[in-house]
Simulated assay, not measured.
Amino acid sequence: MTASPELADRYAAVTAGIADACAGAGRSPDELTLVVVTKFHPAQLVRDLVELGVRHVGENRHQDAAPKAAELADLPLTWHFVGQLQSNKAKAAARYADVIHSVDRESLVTALASAERAPDVFLEVNLTDDPGRGGVSPDRVEELAEAVVATERLRLRGVMGVAPLDEDARSAFARLRAIGERVRSLAPEATDLSAGMSGDYAEAIAEGATHLRIGTAITGKRPAPQ
C-alpha cells in the first residue's frame, strides 16, 4: 500500500459521509457512483486511489486528462470528463473519456457523435441566471436531449448540474432533478443525475443523485495548475 494515511483517512471519511447521507435519504450507497476528481493532481495519486478502491476518476481539462489517462491505461478505471469541453477537442477527449458530464450545446453533440469511440453523456444544465456559465439553459434541455438521441451513437445518461453559490444546494438539486424528469420523458433510459461535490454531496443524495463528483474532500488541496 502506497497511499498516504491522510489520503486513506479522507477517502474513508467521505465514504462514511455518503453512507450516512444515504441512510438519511432511505437510499443505498450501492445506488451511487463516486467519481473522484483528480484535477491538477499527478498520476501517482490516481494509482493510490485505485489501491483504496476507487474505480471512477474525473478530470476537467483535456490537456491534463489525455496524458494522465494514457499513463494510467493499465488501471481498471472509468474516466469521466467533468469540465467544459471545446468542440474541437471533443473527438480527442472521447478517446479516453468513457463518460462526459458537460455536454451543453449541439456542436459538441455533433463532434462527439462523429468520434471513433462514442462516450456516454450527461447534459450539463446551467442552474444560475448567468448565461456566461457553462451549461444549457433549462428551457433548451429537451432540444439538446433530442439532438443526442438523434445521433443513435451517444448514450444519454441524464443531466448534470452545479449548485449556485447563492442558492440553497438542495433546492438547486431539486430543480435539476425536475429537469431530469423532463429529459426522461424523451429518453426513458436517461435516469442518472450527476450532482454533488465536496461541500454539498449530502444534499445531492437527498435529491436522488446517482453520480457524485468529489475532489478536494478526498484528494486534499490541489496543486497549482501547470
Results as ranks from 00 to 15, higher is better:
Lys221Gly: 14
Ala178Ile: 11
Asp129Tyr: 00
Pro5Ser: 01
Arg184Thr: 05
Met160Arg: 15
Asp64Ile: 09
Leu52Phe: 02
Leu112Cys: 02
Arg170Val: 10
Gly158Ala: 14
Asp130Trp: 08
Gln226Phe: 12
Gly135Cys: 11
Gly161Cys: 13
Ala190Arg: 12
Glu207Trp: 07
Asn126Cys: 07
His62Gln: 15
Gly208Asn: 07
His101Ile: 03
Ala90Leu: 12
Ala202Trp: 01
Gly17Phe: 03
Gly208Val: 13
Gly196Ala: 02
Leu52Asp: 00
Ala195Tyr: 08
Asp64Thr: 10
Glu6Gln: 04
Asp120Ile: 11
Ser185Lys: 14
Met197Gln: 02
Ala174Met: 11
Cys22Tyr: 03
Thr128Glu: 01
Gly196Thr: 01
Leu108Ala: 09
Arg157Gln: 11
Ala94Asn: 09
Pro42Leu: 08
Gly132Pro: 07
Gln63Trp: 06
Ala73Leu: 03
Arg182Gln: 15
Ala190Tyr: 10
Asp139Trp: 01
Pro42Gly: 07
Pro225Arg: 14
Met197Val: 00
Glu207Gly: 06
Ser102Gly: 06
Leu144Tyr: 07
Glu146Gln: 15
Ser198Thr: 12
Val82Asn: 00
Leu112Gly: 03
Val46Leu: 01
Asp48Leu: 06
Ala69Lys: 05
Thr219Glu: 08
Ala147Gly: 13
Arg140Ala: 07
Ala217Met: 07
Gly196Ile: 03
Ala204Met: 05
Glu106Lys: 15
Ser114Ile: 06
Gly158Phe: 14
Asp129Pro: 00
Gln84Lys: 14
Asn126Met: 06
Thr151Arg: 09
Glu116Gln: 06
Val136Ile: 10
Asp98Thr: 03
Ala224Asn: 12
Ala172Arg: 10
Ser137Val: 10
Val159Thr: 14
Asp104Gln: 12
Arg184Met: 09
Ser194Gln: 06
Pro164Glu: 01
Ala97Val: 01
Leu108Pro: 11
Ser198Pro: 06
Gln84Pro: 15
Leu212Val: 00
Ala178His: 11
Val159His: 12
Lys221Leu: 15
Pro29Phe: 02
Ala43Tyr: 06
Arg95Val: 10
Arg157Ser: 13
Ala204Thr: 04
Gly53Lys: 02
Phe40Asp: 10
Ala66Val: 12
Ala21Asn: 04
Thr191Gln: 11
Ser28Glu: 04
Ala21Thr: 03
Thr110Asn: 11
Arg177Pro: 07
Ala195Glu: 05
Glu51Val: 01
Ala172Asp: 09
Ala65Thr: 00
Ala25Gly: 04
Ser198Ile: 09
Gly58Arg: 06
Gln86Val: 05
Pro225Gln: 15
Val125Glu: 09
Asp74Trp: 05
Ala187Ser: 15
Pro76Trp: 00
Val149Tyr: 07
Phe40Ala: 10
Gly161Glu: 14
Ala69Cys: 11
Pro164Val: 05
Arg27Phe: 08
Thr210Ile: 04
Val36Leu: 02
Ala69Thr: 03
Val121Trp: 03
Arg184Lys: 09
Thr216His: 14
Gln44Ser: 13
Ala150Ile: 04
Ser185Ala: 15
Asp168Pro: 12
